[in-house]
Amino acid sequence: MLAQARETMPGPGALRGGMAVELKWDGYRIILFTSSRPGGPVLLQTRKGGLIQDRFPDLVAAASQLPPGLVLDGELMVLTGDGVMDFGALQRRAASGAPRTVQALVKAFPAYVVVFDVLQVAGQPVLAERYERRRSLLESLFADHALTPPWTLCPSTTDLAVAREWLETWTRAPGIEGVVCKGLHQTYRPGARGWLKVRARQTTEALIGAITGSLGRPHLLVLGRFDAEGRLRHVGKTTGLSPAAARQLADQLTAAAPGTHPWEGARFSAGWGSSSVLDTTLIVPDRVAEVSVDTARDRGVWRHPVRLVRLRADVPVQDVQPY
Rank of each mutant, 00 (worst) to 15 (best):
E7Y: 06
R16W: 08
A296I: 14
L249K: 06
E168S: 13
A62Y: 13
F268E: 10
P322A: 02
L282H: 02
G17L: 04
A146C: 08
R134N: 12
E132I: 11
S276T: 10
A95S: 15
A146V: 12
R189Y: 00
L232K: 05
A94K: 07
P285M: 08
G300F: 02
A108M: 10
L253G: 05
A5P: 09
L253Y: 04
L184C: 03
T101R: 15
A246D: 03
G259S: 01
P262V: 03
K107C: 02
T80C: 02
F109L: 09
R267P: 01
D54H: 11
A163P: 07
Q252D: 03
G300T: 01
Q4M: 14
E139I: 01
V198C: 06
G49S: 02
Q202R: 15
V222F: 01
P10V: 04
D58W: 14
T158K: 14
G213V: 00
V113K: 12
Y131S: 07
G300I: 08
W272E: 03
I52K: 00
V288T: 00
G18T: 03
L147H: 10
I30P: 13
I283T: 05
G213S: 06
E165W: 15
V315D: 04
G209P: 09
L141G: 05
W195Q: 02
L127N: 06
D117C: 03
V320R: 03
Y131Q: 11
L66R: 08
G273A: 08
Q252T: 06
E177F: 08
D294P: 00
D251H: 15
L138E: 00
P305K: 10
E205T: 13
H234Q: 04
S36K: 15
F142Q: 02
G194H: 11
E165Q: 14
M1G: 12
R247N: 12
P262H: 01
A250V: 02
T187H: 07
R310K: 14
G39V: 00
V102P: 11
G18C: 03
V106Y: 13
L253D: 06
V78S: 00
L241N: 09
A143Q: 14
A94Q: 12
E139D: 05
E165P: 07
L76C: 08
L32V: 04
V21C: 07
L32W: 03
Y112Q: 04
T295K: 12
H185L: 15
T204L: 09
G216H: 00
L32H: 02
V118I: 15
R233D: 06
E229S: 10
G216C: 06
R189D: 13
R172I: 01
A5M: 11
V288G: 07
L308K: 07
K197I: 09
E129I: 10
W25T: 09
A3I: 10
D54N: 11
L90K: 07
E205F: 05
L241T: 00
L184N: 04
A206K: 01
T171W: 09
E168Y: 01
P150L: 03
G11K: 04
M9L: 13
